[in-house]
């Protein structure tokens, strides 16, 4: 039991953390692009905003379960054909795709919260658009970005449930197996307890950091 539990815990953490990281590698730049090309952004560009926003919306409408099927060719390409099935790593690509659209919107929203007056002040000081993104928008939105990270990570943990469909492991799939196939509700609950703990640690940890680094007036 303990062995299964810890290997599942490891699988869930690896799936979640790697996918979250990759989702931000792709989603953060897209979120920035969506923000700066929006109507009130630094370089308003309606066509770009609509097309990129549309792609993000389409991606977000495809359920994670179907992304697993749709992305089989990509997984074959990246991980090597036949090498990845039944392994936690098979979930990385679908999870990343399921999350980066979400990340883009979360980032876009966080950046939109930055006071437009501050951006205006930076422009009046002769800042380039690049400088405004990296020295004003991202640093000023840092607290909101961290809260967004918590929400994203917790969503991805939820998506790891689909690992069960392709025997990729993880706590949630294992918990399902215990409860559904083995009629072992004690083990099921123990697995779930670990999921709950991970979610608590991530959510509260991020909130704590977000609060600590936020130097605006505390309300």
């Amino acid at each position: 039991m303990a062995e299964i539990l810890f290997s599942s815990l490891g699988e869930t953490l690896l799936m979640t953390l790697i996918s979250t990281f990759l989702a931000y590698v792709i989603g953060l730049p897209i979120g920035i692009l969506l923000n700066i090309t929006s109507k009130k952004g630094l370089i308003p560009n309606r066509p770009v905003n609509l097309i990129v926003g549309g792609i993000v919306n389409i991606l977000r409408s495809i359920p994670c379960l179907l992304l697993i099927v749709i992305l089989i060719p990509l997984s074959n390409l990246v991980l090597g054909k036949g090498n990845w099935s039944g392994n936690w790593s098979s979930m990385i690509i679908p999870l990343t795709f399921a999350a980066f659209g979400f990340v883009s919107r979360v980032v876009e929203q966080s950046l939109a919260e930055v006071d437009s007056g501050v951006v205006e002040a930076a422009r009046s000081l002769g800042a380039t658009n690049r400088q405004i993104v990296f020295k004003v928008l991202l640093p000023e939105a840092r607290s909101s970005l961290i809260t967004g990270l918590a929400v994203t990570t917790v969503s991805i943990i939820g998506y790891t449930a689909f690992a069960g469909n392709i025997a990729a492991g993880g706590l949630i799939a294992q918990s399902f197996n215990f409860g559904y196939y083995n009629d072992d509700s004690t083990s099921m609950w123990i697995c779930l307890l670990f999921v709950i703990l991970i979610v608590q640690v991530i959510q509260e940890g991020c909130l704590l950091i977000a609060k600590k680094i936020d130097k605006r007036r505390k309300i």
Binding site: V118, A121, S124, S143, R216
Partner: peptide, 11 residues
């Protein structure tokens, strides 16, 4: 330029 709302970088 200086502004009515100061527009300082809060962080």
């Amino acid at each position: 330029t200086i502004f009515q709302n100061f527009n300082l970088l809060e962080q």
